[in-house]
Design a protein around this nucleic acid. Structure first.
Lengths: 203, 203
DNA sequence: ATCGTAGGCGTACATCGTACGCTTAAAATC
DNA sequence: GATTTTAAGCGTACGATGTACGCCTACGAT
């Protein structure tokens, strides 16, 4: 009966993500996104309740790129989880500026719930149960979001590392920082994750 | 020659932290902090360059409570690092609302640099060196900031967990969420950390 | 052709950070 | 003790932002 909507939520999310990718997270305002869509600022509110919901849409869009299909059943469980985690890293790495939003909206993302369910399936098959399963999943997601944020806010190859490398009051930090420039984000992410996973043991 | 300052930076940081502890991070504005100090809004700018610097002061104040003294030399290295990490958790847990600031200002905190130097000392004594030492330190700090944020934004005993426990489309998530309420933040933090540490091996 | 409903927009306001320029306290000098 | 000098402290004002509210209007159903 009424007038039909002229935009889909997918278009909203895409426009917001485009703004973020182009001009950074600070540029994400109701006004810029509305302009990106060619509608007025308040027109946006016919589609979302407010900025928070818009951010949630962006997060969900980014995570949509993550394949949550588990590896073949005979894959060692640590490897299977490692693959799932690496997929998240790649998807998020394609839109680095959204990292801060990930933390705030992570728990509202259906796709990430699906991802977690898959990880839990692997953990359960590996013999995990009860509180140990809780802490295992939490440790994995905690590690992931932590390292992703570290990489976004202070990449090992970035300026901050150079500053530390030049300090003489913290010799170990300085020497470590000099080694750091050569470590890629992928290697960094993977090294810590496999350490964590190999330290996790069912029961 | 000029008029002397009537406030110390310590007082500034304490006032800002008081606002955060009392009314949450959203309440941290230049105006509220100035009011807390009994000065005018713009008076604050005689002490800090802007909001960013004020936030950095708060972070530094919170981290000041962390003892960076390493345990006795004959302590196993994993235990020594575990103790250092736990001290951070306790200090941060005393002011949960500052957690988001930790991420953004972590790299500017001298006290945290000191803390990292101590951890690197332990890692080095354990036989770590080169890129492996880089990734080990990064994994530890990444895990810590990640889990601390998870605990702050979505505590296992919180409402979000209850919502997940009630969902039937993700049975493993639901069942895991039911187990989660019984896990304390300390146990959660410690379980993941000791898994990570025991998975880390020098060379 | 008409009508009801939701789409879309413009205005307006509260809140925030902060630039700018004034007044004034008080240490240093005489 | 009077004067000078320098930064302390403040008030006003402005741009940016999220969003409440009420208007007009497009368009499917009748």
């Amino acid at each position: 009966m009424p007038r039909p909507r002229s935009l889909t939520t997918a278009q909203l999310a895409a426009a917001a993500l485009a703004v973020i990718d182009r001009d950074g997270l600070d540029a994400l305002t109701m006004r810029t996104v509305a302009a990106e869509l060619g509608i007025s600022t308040m027109g946006l509110y016919r589609y979302v309740d407010g900025r928070d919901q818009l951010e949630a849409l962006v997060v969900e869009l980014v995570l949509t790129d993550v394949d949550t299909t588990p590896a073949a059943g005979d894959t060692p469980w640590r490897g299977a989880i490692g693959t799932l985690a690496e997929r998240v890293r790649v998807a998020v790495g394609a839109h680095p500026a959204v990292v801060p939003l990930l933390m705030t909206h992570r728990h509202r993302s259906p796709h990430l719930l699906r991802w977690s369910e898959t990880v839990l399936g692997i953990l359960t098959a590996a013999g995990y149960d009860g509180p140990a399963r809780v802490t295992a999943l939490r440790a994995i997601t905690g590690y992931m979001v932590g390292v992703l944020q570290l990489q976004h806010l202070g990449p090992l190859a970035g300026a901050g590392t150079k500053v530390i490398a030049a300090q003489s009051d913290f010799p170990l930090m300085a020497s470590t920082a000099r080694d750091a420039a050569a470590v890629t984000p992928e290697a960094e992410f993977g090294a810590g994750l496999s350490a964590l996973l190999s330290g996790l043991t069912p029961r």
